[in-house]
Nucleic acid binder design. Structure first.
Length: 303
DNA sequence: ACGTTGCAAAACAGATAGTC
DNA sequence: GACTATCTGTTTTGCAACGT
């Protein structure tokens, strides 16, 4: 007997969830059937694919090698099914999307809800994390597509510019630099409140600042825009976030903006996918929808 | 001669119940 | 929660009968 698609499906589900029971739910089988399918696959391949640690199953090196191959086969199978499905069926199912904080919280959540209202058979599962972890999720096939704010050098990933964003340097309105145009030199010695290591926002800002000879002294780092805003409100220092995240506060004059001569703050957001996977019709529809949604939002804001 | 259909037996996959 | 033993339903396989 040869390995079956069902076994590969089970293998991928266990690899993604790390648990037989959860994998069983994902593939609509009972736990024993899932366990046996996995055992049979391991028997067929004459190798263990997971390390058993208590109740957890962790991919070993053989499993890690198999995962991209299995995902590719399953994707191709899905493509065949899609090719013969009805147009409505093409947009049904669950789409796993991973997005970095700014994009996830301030752009995609609204877009995903609107998309779900228009496509009632589609389910968007949105995971929000920093850029580094979004890349990991896409590289590990845990998300079909990802939206990131930073550079991506991972050879497993294909990235394409998707949307333009602008960072803003902001501070407490009573800060001496609030509303000022300054040179990079005038910022030396300032305390900064930035996102954590691994954040695309932080990486982009620090790289560009370094090019101007500015090496920000990071006094505080936080994993969410809200935490950074709170710290800046308390006078902790200069914050750097996407303008998307502080629009409301700027309109209410709760923050002052600091303009730095020569510092590039416009950056692209990137759409990423695994190089071995092509977008499903549902993923393509979601990407198109998000682009249209953003354009429409900008038009409404401009009025 | 070759292809199709129908039937019975074997093999297989999955569920339930129970154990660790 | 993972796994095993056992049972059950489904699928596959092999073969005979029939039609073209």
């Amino acid at each position: 007997m040869r390995i079956t698609l069902k076994q590969l499906q089970v293998f991928e589900a266990v690899a993604r969830s790390g648990q037989v029971a959860k994998a069983a739910e994902m593939v609509n089988l009972s736990s024993p059937a899932t366990s046996m399918a996995l055992a049979e696959l391991e028997r067929q391949l004459a190798t263990r694919l997971f390390e058993r640690s208590g109740n957890r199953l962790l991919l070993n090196s053989q499993g890690s090698m198999l995962l991209p191959m299995a995902s590719k086969v399953l994707q191709q199978t899905a493509d065949i099914e899609m090719a013969f499905a009805s147009p409505a069926a093409l947009l049904a199912g669950t789409l796993h999307v991973s997005a970095s904080n700014t994009i996830g919280n301030f752009l995609l959540t609204k877009a995903a809800v609107a998309f779900g209202q228009q496509h009632t058979d589609a389910r968007i599962e949105l995971t929000i994390d920093n850029t580094r972890n979004v890349v990991r999720q896409v590289a590990d096939f845990r998300a079909e597509l990802g939206f990131i704010e930073g550079y991506c050098l991972d050879s497993r990933i294909v990235a394409a510019p998707w949307h333009q964003d602008r960072l803003s340097i902001f501070c407490h309105p009573a800060h001496p630099l609030a509303g000022k145009q300054v040179t990079p030199e005038q910022l030396s010695g300032c305390a900064w409140v930035l996102r954590e290591e691994g954040s695309g926002t932080r990486e982009y800002f620090v790289n560009n600042a370094n090019q101007l000879g500015l090496h920000p002294e990071v006094k505080f780092s936080f994993p969410t825009p809200d935490a950074i805003k709170q710290a800046v409100k308390q006078g902790a220092g200069l914050g750097v976030l996407s303008e998307l995240t502080i629009e409301r506060e700027l309109a209410r004059r709760e923050f002052g903006v600091v303009n730095v001569a020569g510092l590039a703050l416009t950056r692209p957001f990137y759409l990423i996918r695994h190089k071995h996977l092509s977008f499903t019709p549902l993923a393509s529809a979601f990407i198109d929808f998000c682009s249209d949604f953003l354009q429409l939002s900008h038009q409404v804001e401009a009025k």
